[in-house]
Every structure is written in C-alpha cells, then in structure tokens.
Amino acid sequence: MNPNPSDESPTSSETRERFVERAMEEFESALIGYAATILHDIDLARDVAQDTFLRLCEQEPAKVEKQLKAWLFTVCRNRAFDVLRKQRRVEPIDEVRWKKVAGDEMQPDETLRQRERLEKAAALLDRLTENQREVIVLKFQQGLSYREISEVTGLSTGNIGFLIHTGLKRMRDLLPADI
C-alpha cells in the first residue's frame, strides 16, 4: 500500500499543481482586488483569495477549466460575503472597514498606497446601492462581461445592464467632485 496518496498518480497530481499555479498567476490580483472591494480590507481579501485557490485544489481541473473565471469569482464572492456576514455579527461593518482601511500602524510604502487606493475606491462605491456596487466592480475593475457577471451574481443580464447604466450615471454625477 502506498503511504503517500499523491504518489498514486504523479502525472495528474503534477497537472493539478500546474493548473492551480496558472490560475493563481492569472487571477490572483483580480480576486484579491474583487474581495477587497467587498471587505474593504486588503489582508482579509488575501485570505479570501487564498481560500478560493484552496477550494480550487479540491476540484478536478477538467471540470472547472472551461468556466474557471466565473467559478473563481463565484467562490471568491461567496467566501467574501461569508466573511463579511461574520464580521457584521462582531461589530458594525462601517467601523470595521474604516478602521481597516485607515490602518492604525505605519505601513510600508506599497501597502500604504494600496490602502489609499482602496480607501478612495471604497468611498466612491459607497455612493452606490449594493447591487450597483457589485456589478460596477465586476465590470469596470475586473472586466467581466454581462454574461460572466450573471454567472457570478445570479442576476439577469438585463438587470445587470440596467444596474450598470444607472450606476455609471450616478458615477458621472459624482466623479468630478471625487477625482
């Protein structure tokens, strides 16, 4: 009997590792950015992205490869909202997010810049409704198509078109003052 399960099929194991590595290279930043706009916390967003890739490790590559992008964003979204829901039970979310966004310690330059960007984006997105915020982020930050957004959020493409249109109009009114 083989004590190491991974030795049973070295080829498939190697393929899985390479598959996950490729997925990380392509989607790591996008998933962290997406989760950060939900959680307003770059460190928590990294944890969520890590969880998403750990879930990917459990999947058969052949089964998820065709819709990998939508799969990753869906898992990331669900995990981020799960974390957000747990946070809400502990303390009001606005206190959490702004405390995390502002940070209470000196940060290295790059981290500080990321936090500033996130703070600015969060302030802008807070002017939108929850649904508008979600589709706007997936469209303009992540570049997903209406159909991909539909797969991730479960909203209809017609509804997504309307939400993006109204969200963009709202941004059009706000941006000159914010940027």
Partner: peptide, 10 residues
Amino acid sequence: GSLDLGEPRL
C-alpha cells in the same frame, strides 16, 4: 482608473 487597486499579491 479610480477602481484600480494595483496588483495586490498573495
């Protein structure tokens, strides 16, 4: 541009 968070990494 305003939603660009750079390239955060794990």
